[in-house]
Design a protein around this nucleic acid. Sequence first.
DNA 1: AGTAAGAATGATAATCGTTATCATTATTGT
DNA 2: ACAATAATGATAACGATTATCATTCTTACT
Lengths: 147, 147
Amino acid sequence: MNELMKFETYLRSHGQKMTRPRRVILEAFLGAEGHLSIDDILREAKKIDPGIGQATVFRTIRLITSAGLAREALQEDGARTFEHLADHPHHDHLLCVGCGKIIEFLSPLIEQEQQRIFVRYGFEPRGHMMELLGLCPECQAKERGEH
Amino acid sequence: MNELMKFETYLRSHGQKMTRPRRVILEAFLGAEGHLSIDDILREAKKIDPGIGQATVFRTIRLITSAGLAREALQEDGARTFEHLADHPHHDHLLCVGCGKIIEFLSPLIEQEQQRIFVRYGFEPRGHMMELLGLCPECQAKERGEH
DNA sequence: AGTAAGAATGATAATCGTTATCATTATTGT
DNA sequence: ACAATAATGATAACGATTATCATTCTTACT
Ligand SMILES: [Mn+2]
Ligand SMILES: [Mn+2]
Ligand SMILES: [Zn+2]
Ligand SMILES: [Zn+2]
C-alpha cells in the first residue's frame, strides 16, 4: 500500500476529502528527502502547482503527520521541520550545535529501555523525542583554530 | 556555593552586572518547583517586586540557563518551560499526551548509551533532550470508559 | 449528468511568543 | 560623588502559526 493510498484511507476514515492540493502537497513532501520546514514544503509544492497556499500546507502537513506518514522534529532553535517515513525507519538525531548538521542513528538498546520505562509507569507508548546535542568534529577543529 | 553566588560569578565572568531585577527573578524562579513558563516566573517575580518587566524575565532566564542553573524543556505542544537545577539532578520526562502529567525519571543505562553515541560520531557532548510520550493509566481508563 | 450540501481552499487578518528599540535608571570603578 | 556604561521596562516590531471568510471543489444523491 503506497503513501497516497494510506493518506486517502486516513482521510476517508476521518470524514475528510482527498483533494488536489492535498495530493500535490503529499507528492512534493515525499519527493524531497531530509528535514523540511513548512516553507520548504510550500516551495516544492508550488513547483507542481503554483496556486498552493501556505495555509493549506500547514493544514495538510498536520494531517499527513496524524496519518502516521510523517513526523515532526524540533530543531534546537525551536524551528519545526518534518520528515516523511516512507522508506525511512524510525531513528533519533544527533545534532551539531555549531553548524546544525544532523546525524541520524538508531540505538536498539535505548529503544528497548524506553519501552521498559513505559511499562514501569503503566503508560501506553505514543512515541518519543530524543535529540543529542553536541559539537561535531569539524566544529571542534574550527573552534580550536580560532582561539 | 549557593545558586545566587553561582549566578553572580557567571555574570561577572561574562562582564555583566548583578542587579536587583536579576536577583528577584532568580529568587522567584528558585522558590517555585516544577516546570515554569515565562509568565509563571513573571507572576512569581511580581509578588516580590511588582515593577519587574516581562522583557527582563526573558533576558534573565536566558542568563540563568546559560549559567547552568536551569534547563529548558519543550512541552509536547511546543510551549517552553524552565526548571531549576538546584537540588534537582538531571532527569528526563515521561509525558502524558492526555492530561499533560509529567513523570521525571532517570535511566543510567540510557545516559551511558548516549555517551557512547557521542563518542562513536566524534561529537563533544553538549546535552540532550528526551521526552517519552504516552497515555497515563488514568487517561487510559478514561478513554476506555468513554467508548 | 445535474444539483445541493458541506468541506476545502487561499488570501488575509488576527494572535501569540519572542526579540529589538530606546529613553530612563541603576551599577560600578574611579 | 561622578562619569561611563550596562540594564531596565514600556512599547513596537517580528515571525510563525491559526482563525476568518468569500469562493471553489468534492461528493452523494437524484
Ligand atoms: Mn531524521
Ligand atoms: Mn523536570
Ligand atoms: Zn558542526
Ligand atoms: Zn494522563
